[in-house]
Nucleic acid binder design. Structure first.
Length: 431
RNA sequence: GGAACGGUGGCAGAGCGGACAAAUGCAUCCGCCUUGAAAGCGGAAGGCUCAAAAGGCCCGGGGGUUCGAAUCCCUCCCGUUCCGCCA
């Protein structure tokens, strides 16, 4: 959520920043928010004046009763009662206006960072790093899509996954299943030097999913367990971000670094029919997420740290990759500044987004009410949040298939994964 | 799922219709003492809202009773313990 005070005091700044996202309807919403805020403050002022008088009268009633002056007390009580109705109706208008304001504010996206590149769509995302580790050319046997490679190796059984759960569910078996698990283990081990490992719940409350920005606007994209009012997490970002919701931390505890392996659940409501084959888009997938909670002062360094860590994982696997920065027109709702790591998959002949690393400024921190206190200072500040996929399994899995396929149809396992693969150095066709 | 007991400031914990934003302890900050520190002594200090003062709001959430609610009533949520069920 954007700071209402900023909206109030510097509306032109907020307008200018949001305009960079290139969506005119946002500016209309912004005006609605501004006028609702004015309403709320006007009602508050009038309500509080009445409340002050009621409080004052109540004290006088107490005094009068104690002094045995019952006539005076009756008189004061009558006055107080008559104010009660006005107070009640003002309180109701306040609730209404406040609720409307909150709803608009929750749906407004974050302001882009001043250094975030301008642009209208993903075509305008500038290249920041790479392409690195790109071979001069690809051989013919690398030009096979991973689902065909995996099928030939007997390590992907999406037909049966569909039988179990329906379209867009995947199932790996044998060395394929082991490879998924190895990728997670690798990602966790490579970040264990600075990140505390968390195994969070996969089902979370509405409040938790609202804090990160998935709700209320993107309810269609998430799986809901309606009977129990719970949601399946689309990413471990949700539980990690809300771990400290409603708490006040000491600044000495910051930055706080957490990482988590989890399954992620996405309805993919807007992309039915896209990437239906193989592993590129599924309703359920595994991911290792890295997360940091910080002061605004250190957030920009942390963003680069998280990005470097994600890059190091991909580089370590020997895959061809590049890093792009997300432009204002392509940025996610909660993002302040954001980078994507893409891996080239020769079989699909596509750059696959395998990691997204973002800084949310205080947008999520305000929604989650995560605050910190500076040592020796009065008052509290809203914490900044950052996160990134350290490693999203399916697309990396697919890229390994397509990049490391040999002429004989076998796939070489990257060296860094072999310790997690019981020493296996390649996946060969069965029999 | 059933029963009992709970939910109060950063933490622990009193208060159980009016003088309560709320005792006390720990932690924090500032003095004094000390070469320095600890201990001791004295003092300061909750959060949110408002440009600020005044004012208002906050004792798990919501609703009610009352002139007045942390305190009484209803309801929901959460926790602990016991029982039931169960990887």
């Amino acid at each position: 959520m954007i700071d209402v005070r900023l909206l109030r005091n510097e509306p032109h700044l907020v307008k200018a920043a949001l305009a960079r996202r290139g969506k005119p309807e946002l500016l209309v919403q912004l005006d609605t928010a501004i006028s609702l805020d004015e309403q709320v403050r006007d009602i508050t002022a009038r309500r509080d004046t009445i409340r002050a008088r009621v409080n004052e009268l109540s004290k006088l009633v107490g005094t009068a009763r104690r002094n045995g002056d019952n006539d005076e007390a009756e008189k004061l009580q009558a006055e107080s009662r008559s104010l009660g109705d006005d107070e009640k109706s003002l309180a109701e208008s306040f609730e209404t206006a406040q609720g409307q304001l909150r709803d608009v504010m929750l749906r407004l996206p974050n302001l882009p960072h001043p250094d975030a590149p301008d642009g209208a769509s993903d075509h305008d995302n500038p290249l920041v790093i790479g392409p690195n580790q790109m071979p001069a050319s690809f051989t013919e046997h690398q030009r096979m899509p991973h689902w065909e490679i995996a099928d030939a190796l007997g390590i992907l059984d999406n037909e049966r996954a569909v039988k179990l759960s329906g379209a867009m569910f995947t199932m790996q078996r044998g060395a394929g299943a082991m490879l998924s698990r190895a990728l997670c283990q690798y990602a966790l081990d490579m970040n264990a030097d600075a990140f505390e490992e968390i195994r969070p719940p996969s089902l979370v409350t509405t409040a938790t999913l609202t804090a990160t920005g998935q709700l209320p606007k993107f309810a269609e994209d998430a799986y809901a367990i309606e009977r129990d009012d719970l949601w399946c997490i689309p990413t471990a970002e949700a539980p990690l971000t809300s771990m400290y919701a409603g708490e006040v931390l000491d600044d000495a505890q910051l930055p706080l670094r957490l990482m988590a392996y989890s399954s992620c659940y996405r309805r993919e409501a807007g992309s039915a029919g896209r990437d239906t084959r193989g592993m590129l888009r599924a309703h359920e997938f595994d991911k290792v997420e890295i997360f940091a909670l910080s002061t605004p002062e250190t957030a920009d360094e942390l963003l680069i740290e998280l990005r470097d860590r994600a890059e190091r994982l991909i580089a370590g696997l020997g895959l061809p990759y590049r890093i792009i920065e997300i432009c204002t027109g392509d940025m996610g709702q909660s993002h302040h500044r954001s980078f994507d790591i893409e891996v080239y998959a020769p079989g699909c002949d596509n750059w696959l987004e395998v990691s997204s690393v973002s800084w949310f400024s205080d947008y999520q921190g305000r929604r989650a009410d995560i605050r910190y206190r500076k040592t020796g200072e009065k008052g509290t500040h809203i914490a900044n949040t950052l996160n990134g996929s350290a490693l999203a399994v399916p697309r990396v899995w697919a890229a390994i298939m397509e990049n490391f396929r040999e002429a004989d149809g076998s796939v070489i396992i990257p060296e860094v994964l072999r310790p997690y693969m019981r020493g296996m150095d390649r996946i060969s066709p069965r029999g």
